[in-house]
Design a protein around this nucleic acid. Structure first.
Lengths: 109, 109
DNA sequence: TGAACATATGAACAATAGTTCATATAAGTA
DNA sequence: TACTTATATGAACTATTGTTCATATGTTCA
């Protein structure tokens, strides 16, 4: 492969910015807790305490996980009285999570 | 949400085994080098030296990245003379990478 | 066989990410 | 207003991951 071909390949790759953003998103899904949270939220919105109870993890651990997801705009919140209800951020996220869901189901058998 | 509802939710989640496998895969994509490698290989098979040149990274770094991808069976190899040619492992991987590609393109604008 | 090229690997170190503990904030309720 | 419940956050610690350096392995070619 000559130098011209190499340069051509470089230009076919996404910009650093876009690359980082995508990798950060994957990074968030690399942790089972966070992936589970997204899978749960795909079934419907949940408040923090529910997530804690379902996943059997400490308040702090869940809250930190949620923060990570929030900061990446994978989930969003809505105050409802004294509860903070979490939901998936948008269709893009929903599609991604659904893909995981399907893949998981396939692997399960 | 009562205890029964919580138990019901737990059962809708994938098994730990499947969960781990999926998260490991995402973990591999969390690193820009490895994501770039997959994006490159989606365009066609490449030998290690080409990947090094395109990404401008050290032999060792690329080789370690490739090992990670290989161990997760995201890429496979084929010896061709003194070169080791890498390619995406299967259709599943290809679909996933293509999704990234499309998403990247969308974000680029 | 020896030299050059292509690739892999282990170990050490550096950087990142996850977890826990203590504490803070905020809303509802008595 | 004080108390309880719900959630968030910072700091310290631990674990995981990535990178580099040195070296090993395997292939071709003279």
């Amino acid at each position: 492969m000559d130098e011209a071909a190499i340069k051509a390949m470089i230009h076919r790759l996404p910009s650093e910015q876009v690359l980082n953003r995508i990798c950060q998103t994957f990074g968030a899904l690399q942790c089972t807790t966070r992936l589970q949270i997204l899978l749960l939220l795909q079934l419907g919105p949940l408040c923090v305490t529910d997530i804690e109870n379902i996943l059997g993890q400490s308040q702090s651990a869940i809250s930190h996980s949620l923060r990570t997801l929030r900061q990446l705009d994978l989930v969003r919140t809505k105050r409802e009285g004294r509860f903070t209800v979490y939901h998936l951020a948008d269709e893009h996220v929903s599609v991604l999570v659904e893909m995981c869901q399907k893949h998981a189901k396939e692997m399960e058998s």
